[in-house]
Write a protein that binds this DNA or RNA. Structure first.
Lengths: 116, 116
DNA sequence: AATAATGGTAACCTATTGGTAACTAACACA
DNA sequence: TGTGTTAGTTACCAATAGGTTACCATTATT
């Protein structure tokens, strides 16, 4: 997903967190907790498991999140922000604040909604 | 381009500035000046004129930029941030700063580069 | 008469993204 | 024995995003 790593800062940022789902996934991890795959599918019912798993893999490859896989049956996998991922908090916070600003008050969100 | 206007602030923000080119276009307008279509094509040689024109139209429809068309021959068209667009400055600045942070020092950008 | 300049648009094509349904392994429980 | 659970993957297809090339109108310049 990373493209054109040189030249322009915004191009770089878009390379990491561009796309429809990545910022939304990252916001689910903002509070620092580890979150299970299944919980993410519940919080984001409009993203298919295939795409979610794909996006999580890219985020992990780019070093923004860490995947913890416990060798249990049935399996348990948890995701959390990496240290690099935590440096994105100001970006995600700015996006979150802007989206709230422009919303009608009754639509203003919380940090833990079901995302549609 | 606007999708799911309710429920989640980040989903809303991505609806406005998601996509490969929109944040990059908006950064070209950050300084408040009116910029001609042709200058944008020079600053962003990797975006085709068709896509640039398409994205500018969407940004205008979403109220983030203003299109000034002067009835001259050959034509002159200028774009600038709207008041709503200016409220995005913290978001764009955060994206720009993050992209610079993670770059090797020799790749750190200026506010007026050719974007690749 | 031809060429350049501007800000596009139309037709067409490719690439990426997204969606659905079925399948897996290994264990727990009824 | 059969069902449920988890975190996926695979195969297949549809939709969307992005890209390429050619073309337009109008005027000035060569």
């Amino acid at each position: 997903m990373l493209q054109n790593p040189e030249n322009c800062a915004v191009v770089r940022t878009v390379g990491y967190i561009g796309g429809k789902w990545k910022p939304i996934i990252l916001v689910r991890l903002l509070n620092g907790e580890k979150v299970r795959f299944g919980k993410l599918t519940v919080q984001m019912p409009d993203i298919s498991r295939k795409i979610l798993s794909q996006q999580l893999k890219e985020l992990e490859e780019d070093g923004l999140i860490i995947r913890h896989s416990y060798m249990e049956k049935p399996p348990r996998v948890e995701y959390e922000l990496s240290e690099l991922g935590k440096t994105l908090i100001p970006v995600l916070k700015a996006m979150y604040d802007w989206g709230n600003q422009i919303a009608a008050p009754e639509h203003k969100g919380t940090w833990d909604p079901i995302v549609r």
